[in-house]
């Protein structure tokens, strides 16, 4: 577990991530209410038992988040999902992966 600031995200992950050693699992978001969103970037290590490295931060819904797809290409799916389901803004990532015009907008956000 390591807390990071949203401005330093790209530098932190660039200095940490090595494709041959680390496996990016997913980007997880969790709405804590009161305009607070907890984001977790979850990594594991290849050939090690149950070893997680988690970067986490708490941000608000109004911020525009940076994207890590330049470092990890497969993160695009996780990011697009969060844009869709939480209504977060991520730079250069479009919504519309799951939801249509008839679906509810950002359904996983707390109603309060």
């Amino acid at each position: 577990m390591q807390e990071i600031k949203i401005e330093n995200l790209i530098e932190e992950i660039t200095s940490f991530y090595d494709p041959k050693l680390h496996h990016f699992v997913c980007l997880n978001a969790n709405d804590l209410g009161e305009n607070r969103l907890k984001l977790q970037w979850i990594f594991t290590f290849y050939n090690q038992e149950d070893n997680y490295q988690i970067f986490w931060t708490i941000c608000s819904f109004d911020e525009v988040l940076p994207t890590i797809t330049k470092i990890i290409p497969s993160a695009i799916m996780s990011e697009a999902e969060i844009v869709d389901l939480f209504g977060v803004q991520i730079k250069d990532i479009q919504g519309g992966l799951y939801l249509d015009e008839t679906s509810p907008i950002s359904p996983l956000r707390c109603s309060i």
């Binding site: 699992v25 290409p73 799916m77």
Partner: peptide, 25 residues
């Protein structure tokens, strides 16, 4: 990823599946 807060309902369930992250590949 599971997050529970001591009630009968869970607070968050995150499901990440194999095909999901493989699509760019």
């Amino acid at each position: 990823y599971l997050n529970a807060n001591g009630t009968n309902m869970l607070q968050r369930v995150r499901i990440k599946t194999p095909t999901f992250s493989q699509i760019p590949g």
